[in-house]
Design a protein around this nucleic acid. Structure first.
Lengths: 121, 121
DNA sequence: TTGACATATTCCTATATGGGAATGTAATTT
DNA sequence: AAATTACATTCCCATATAGGAATATGTCAA
């Protein structure tokens, strides 16, 4: 079998760098497709397809304005990702603490060995 | 062209549900491959391949113990993801506030129209 | 209605997997 | 050394894109 469909999953949707870029633009300001095309270096059809994926997973909203379509990031759609990653936070802080502790223990050892060297001189 | 290589990017690496599952196991406790195979419902080669991807992007560490290999999640590898998602936090809280404000404004309107109905009775 | 503009979708192709099966490799036991 | 155990890698195949080109759809202007 192959990989799961990008369309059905926020994690897959943001796996694409250009889509992350687009999300970053659209969270600041509502933009029409042409603006996005101008900002990211992609053809219009590609942009439309990325927007389609983002829309399908609920990461952007669309609104029609005349013949333009205004897209906007739905920031709340990113929360599941943030929360998932957040479950690892206690582990990485713990790991950082251990690194720090080891560094301090080593510094202490080094100082002591210097002292003993001094005593032996 | 096709999609970017999973191997070279943390975002792509965690796009795979089984890999997220494995990361969740290995962050709690160092496990050998056989344990993982038993816990997730995958064949050993598949698990090894997922571990390979995770290792290539630095999301897990390996350590050999006799003929076993002990894997452990490198929680710090998940920070970039958490931080990227975190840049959207101010926007989703803002959006939530707007929803709340609208709800409160509506409730106020409803109450006032009830009052005016009372006056007209 | 016709023409122009803004997007979306479809068709096509090269590439990247993910799983299954088979095989290779390293370390341990007998 | 041979057999065994624990993993890793390779080969094969079906599927899922991502981008390019062409085409379709929708909206507004004249």
């Amino acid at each position: 079998m192959a990989r799961a469909a990008t369309t059905s999953d926020v994690f897959n949707a943001v796996a694409e760098p250009r889509r992350r870029e687009i999300l970053g633009l659209l969270v600041v300001k509502e933009l029409q497709v042409g603006d996005i095309v101008a900002l990211v270096k992609l053809d219009q059809p590609s942009v439309s397809k990325h927007l389609r994926v983002l829309r399908d997973v609920g990461l952007v909203h669309v609104r029609r304005n005349g013949r333009h379509k205004l897209y906007r990031t739905n920031a709340q759609g990113i929360r599941p990702l943030h929360e998932w990653a957040g479950t690892f936070e206690r582990y990485w802080t713990h790991q950082l603490n251990r690194v720090k502790e080891r560094a301090e223990a080593k510094m202490k050892r080094d100082l002591e060995s210097k002292d003993s060297a001094k005593e032996n001189s």
